[in-house]
């Protein structure tokens, strides 16, 4: 009974108005009518305004950074390729081979093999040092957890971002590579820039 009443009312409504009353009808939004002379004048004026806008871009000049010659400056806290550090006075490595960075690494891309320091010929300031320290940059996600985990600030995230290479094997950076100063310094963004 309920059904039949519904269908009859539906038929009633649809004969006058093609939509059900409770159905939400979306009104179509249209732009203003072009209009005769006023519309033409408006179109002409808007065209001129557009021309002014584009010409202002010429006056401003290009904002392009000519990449291979010019580099995008990075922020001081930018997380680029890792760097290993030495003490500046003694020249000893800060890394003591504790492997905390390897433990913290979510991508599991750090490999540390520690060895005992020879007291005659010390490599690091601590009891042990990293005999092998490798970072597989193909897997690294540059999260910076290794930097946070390191108790001696031996590893930090540098600013270098041009790491692309032709071979995956070449992306495994050894300790010597991580200790070396980068050939070219990445420009740093100034305060407030």
């Amino acid at each position: 009974m309920n059904n039949s009443a519904d269908s009859s009312s539906e038929a009633e409504v649809s004969s006058e108005f093609p939509y059900l009353e409770d159905e939400s009808v979306v009104a179509v939004q249209r732009g203003p009518e072009p209009g005769g002379l006023g519309g033409a004048y408006r179109a002409f004026g808007e065209t001129l305004r557009g021309l002014k806008t584009t010409f202002a871009r010429i006056v401003e000049g290009p904002v392009t950074i000519q990449y291979p010659e010019e580099k995008t400056p990075v922020y001081p806290r930018f997380r680029g390729r890792h760097k290993l550090h030495r003490f500046e006075d003694t020249g000893l490595e800060k890394c003591v081979g504790c492997s905390l960075c390897a433990a913290a690494c979510p991508a599991d891309c750090i490999r540390v093999v520690a060895a005992e320091n020879d007291p005659e010929d010390r490599v690091s300031a601590g009891e042990r040092y990293a005999e092998i320290y490798e970072i597989n940059l193909a897997r690294c996600i540059f999260c910076g957890y290794c930097e946070v985990a390191c108790p001696f600030d031996a590893i930090t995230m540098g600013h270098e971002y041009e790491i692309a290479d032709y071979n995956r094997d070449d992306l495994i950076f050894t300790k010597e590579m991580l200790l070396a100063e980068p050939l070219e310094r990445t420009p740093l963004r100034r305060e407030g820039e």
């Binding site: 584009t54 010409f55 871009r57 010429i58 401003e60 000049g61 290009p62 904002v63 392009t64 000519q66």
Partner: peptide
């Protein structure tokens, strides 16, 4: 066209 689009 490049200049109009703020590039070289």
């Amino acid at each position: 066209l490049g200049r109009f689009q703020a590039r070289y």
